[in-house]
Design a protein around this nucleic acid. Structure first.
Lengths: 138, 138
DNA sequence: CTTAACTGATATTAATATAATATCAGTTTA
DNA sequence: TAAACTGATATTATATTAATATCAGTTAAG
């Protein structure tokens, strides 16, 4: 079970970069080099972040990206949701009206509980809190 | 993020079946039909469960599988570990000596915490507790 | 003593999700 | 007008997960 996929992880790192970068625009190229994220892949990630209003862009030479909100208003869960969708349980039979399988139903409520727990945890971690940790490391 | 993969889920259901089945052997064919699990896939799962000493088998006609421990001694985490390995964090750079990426390191401790949490939850759910729920549903 | 119903072991394929590249059009600045 | 960028989208590669298939060996029952 992987809590974060690579794109979520890359996105977090990219956002942390932007959050550190005052209000200048930072290009995908720069972020890619600083954070060692494959350039083209990062581009896709940035586009997703734009769609979700976490960052904004400036086109053309000297263009790049800028974070749109203060880092204490962005939470890890927001980023997870973008790239990994809502937390989901075992594939099983969820959309179906009546769960055709009792054993699974029994599991369901437990999984929902754990899911909720994980969600709460990730809802409590803001970019700012990570930045704070970062600065302590220096 | 999927908490359980299908094989884990199937394994849990199969084990619940066995746990309900007194001390008779139940064949993969029967379980497959009762729980609607693809037969050949289930066979593989049963073999894994044997390797991990959760069940034992009897060969030949009238053969099948039997659970080896009382259901209050088997926990969901045990089954998850068999089929999904240890909970793992974001792929990132874990085995490496020095984390080459500070931003990620900052995430690391948080992820470890959440991971531990999930682990604890799944360690507290026994097959017996699921069986209890099942019987209430009847 | 042979056949039906089973498990053991392992190989193969299919399906899906994740990760990474590639391309081309359009924008901005110097 | 060229260099350095983003927008949009298509393509490919890789890994993981799920599912099938095959064949040898075992057991029980007629």
């Amino acid at each position: 079970m992987k809590l974060l996929t690579k794109n979520t992880d890359y996105a977090i790192r990219a956002l942390l970069r932007l959050a550190r970068g005052e209000d200048e625009y930072i290009s995908a190229r720069q972020i890619s080099e600083l954070e060692k994220i494959p350039y083209q892949y990062l581009r896709l990630i940035m586009q997703e972040l734009i769609k979700n209003n976490l960052i904004e862009s400036k086109e053309g030479k000297a263009g790049g990206f800028k974070i749109t909100k203060p880092p204490d208003e962005i939470f890890i869960i927001d980023i997870i949701r973008i790239f990994q969708g809502n937390l989901q349980l075992s594939d099983c039979m969820f959309r179906k009206k009546v769960c055709p399988n009792r054993s699974n139903c029994v599991l369901r409520s437990e999984l929902l509980r754990v899911e909720k727990l994980v969600e709460n945890e990730f809802s409590s971690i803001s970019l700012q809190s990570l930045l704070d940790k970062l600065s302590k490391q220096l």
